[in-house]
Amino acid sequence: MLKVNDINVYYGSIHAIKGVSFEVHQGEVVTLIGANGAGKSTILQTVSGLLRSKTGSVEFLGENLGNVAPHKIVAKGLAHVPEGRRVFLQMTVEENLEMGAFTRPGSEVDSGIADVYKRFPRLEERRRQIAGTLSGGEQQMLAMGRALMSKPQLLMLDEPSMGLAPLLVEQIFEIIKELHKAGTTILLVEQNAQMALSVADRGYVLETGKIVTTGTGAELLNDDAVKKAYLGA
């Protein structure tokens, strides 16, 4: 479904991503794990077109996204929940969800919102509230619900557990499992390697802009090097 082939991304003269390649297949949960600054978010931003690679290609459903504007990539079925959630803090919960459906025809908006409320009942309770007044966990739910509004074929989640209390982290991962069960393909970026690998079909370990190890979630959970570096064992 998503095929990233030998991308190199620079911030000015800093070579942030060095020849990274990976694939995500239909129906999978794939995770990119790695320390802070390894380049995980940079990769997602390159896939969604906010950053550009100097070489290689990003192919989604067989189409090269290299020259497609970011706002058009969304319409192709690729939704990105950015790091730090970035919900529209001065807009209401419901308006945030409407923005998520920006690329969809107007007739789908109401049913989409109803679906999101079914998955996140908390958001329905707060539908008229300004997003800035929500708690961190609620904002994460809103960010995920907003992304689901575009009816994505591939959902990219950037650090959904960041800054959340352990109980909320579990709740977020429960939701990821549910989405997976419902057939959504997910590319998950996480620092919380333990949690990420436990829900992922496959994972890639990223170190300073390069992929150093890959395997199934279970394999990586038991990999000695991964254990030592990321699981604190």
Binding site: G49, L50, F88, Q90
Partner: peptide, 10 residues
């Protein structure tokens, strides 16, 4: 509010 996030909405 956030041009980057707006782009991610399409």
């Amino acid at each position: 509010e956030d041009k980057g996030a707006a782009q991610l909405m399409g």
